[in-house]
């Protein structure tokens, strides 16, 4: 038997919202979904009038919906924001090249400026070449670290006031679980924050979709007929996050509201005074935000350029030993060359 829309608009419901269990018709769902994001933006003071905001766009469902909704809300509620799309080209053939086409389509559809920054121009490496050197394991470490810094670099080039990312409620709940599983208290403290960064030397990042369920984002994109790219990355067998994700999906089947409950729990967590807090600083080499010296991106890049790709993977002491060994070998070789030249 068809169910009526919860809002008593008289229409038949087409979906059941996982967050609240309410059955809604298409129009009421659109209105509710957009109103919630508007409420999140207003109540958390994510933007100020006149700001320039970069929407981190990958061409996937989250960033496509984010760009669409931000543009819509900016017009309807007159936020007075200048929105631009910022994409990172990691150089993954068969994946990013196709998804960037989707972003370009979004640029035309939403009439927003688009800036594409590539790993090639920033670091001199593409992910294809990185994977060719290090193999399939740990490649996501390089991609993730470089992408986060590339976003900062792109934002600086564009002169924006903040970067809006498409992290949804599922992503945040999953990250809470994952940080507990690996005992990462530093990230556990900040992973539920709706706004991160924003000191004197950093550009803040905001998550307007923090309270939007992944399922609702997919439904919104589907019913709005938005163009998005839904292929998995060709290099992405994601072991660790996969564990947390599978667990969360199982939990969600039992009680759909568990996602919000986990975010709530993550926000309420406090730590003993004895637990070390990371100090946010700036990398002495590249000048971008980091809590260690040098930053992870610089260490990984140094590893690639030295021909020691495992340099930034695992313990720092191991990396230091690798550098010392290589320096010793180079010194030996140079001495041998000198001897040869003497002859």
């Amino acid at each position: 038997m068809p169910i009526n829309c919860k809002s008593s608009c008289g229409k038949k419901a087409v979906l059941k919202r996982p967050k609240t269990g309410d059955a809604l018709c298409k129009e009421c769902f659109f209105a509710a979904f957009e109103a919630e994001i508007h409420h999140t933006i207003i109540s958390s003071n994510l933007f100020r009038r006149g700001e320039k905001v970069a929407v981190a766009a990958s061409g996937g469902k989250d960033s496509t919906v984010l760009a669409h909704v931000l543009k819509l809300l900016n017009e309807t509620h007159d936020y007075g924001l200048e929105l631009v799309l910022l994409s990172i080209d990691e150089g993954i053939t068969g994946y990013r090249d196709d998804s960037l086409e989707t972003v370009k389509q979004n640029r035309d559809d939403y009439q927003m400026a688009l800036k594409i920054l590539s790993y090639e121009e920033l670091y001199g490496w593409t992910m294809d070449r990185i994977v060719a050197q290090i193999g399939r394991s740990n490649n996501c470490t390089f991609c993730g670290v470089f992408r986060r810094q590339a976003l900062d670099r792109g934002a600086k080039q564009l002169g924006v006031d903040s970067i809006a990312t498409g992290h949804n409620a599922d992503d945040i709940a999953e990250t809470v679980l994952m940080n507990i599983l690996r005992g990462d208290t530093a990230r556990l403290r900040r992973c539920t924050d709706i706004k991160t960064g924003g000191g004197d030397d950093t550009i803040p990042r905001v998550k307007p979709l923090k309270y939007s369920y992944e399922k609702e984002i997919v439904m919104y994109a589907h019913y709005k007929k938005l163009v998005y790219f839904s292929t998995e990355c060709v290099f992405a067998p994601n072991a660790y996050r996969g564990h947390a994700r599978a667990f969360l999906k199982d939990l969600e089947k039992v009680r759909p509201s568990v996602i919000m409950d986990i975010i709530h729990s993550g926000e309420q967590l406090r730590f003993k005074d004895s637990v070390k807090k990371p100090v946010r600083g700036v990398c002495a080499r590249c000048g971008f935000v980091s809590s260690q010296q040098p930053c992870k991106a610089c260490v990984l890049l140094e590893g690639l350029n030295r021909g020691l790709p495992k340099l930034g993977i695992g313990k720092k002491s191991k990396g230091d030993r690798m550098i010392a060994n290589q320096d010793r070998e180079i010194a030996l070789r140079e001495r041998a060359n000198l001897v040869k030249n003497d002859f």
Binding site: V145, T175, M178, C191
Partner: peptide, 19 residues
């Protein structure tokens, strides 16, 4: 867009620690 704050570990996380 499914990763947040994993500068040290990347998407593969601490998979090396999960043997």
């Amino acid at each position: 867009m499914c990763t947040i704050g994993e500068d040290d570990f990347g998407d593969e996380g601490a998979a090396h620690a999960m043997v």
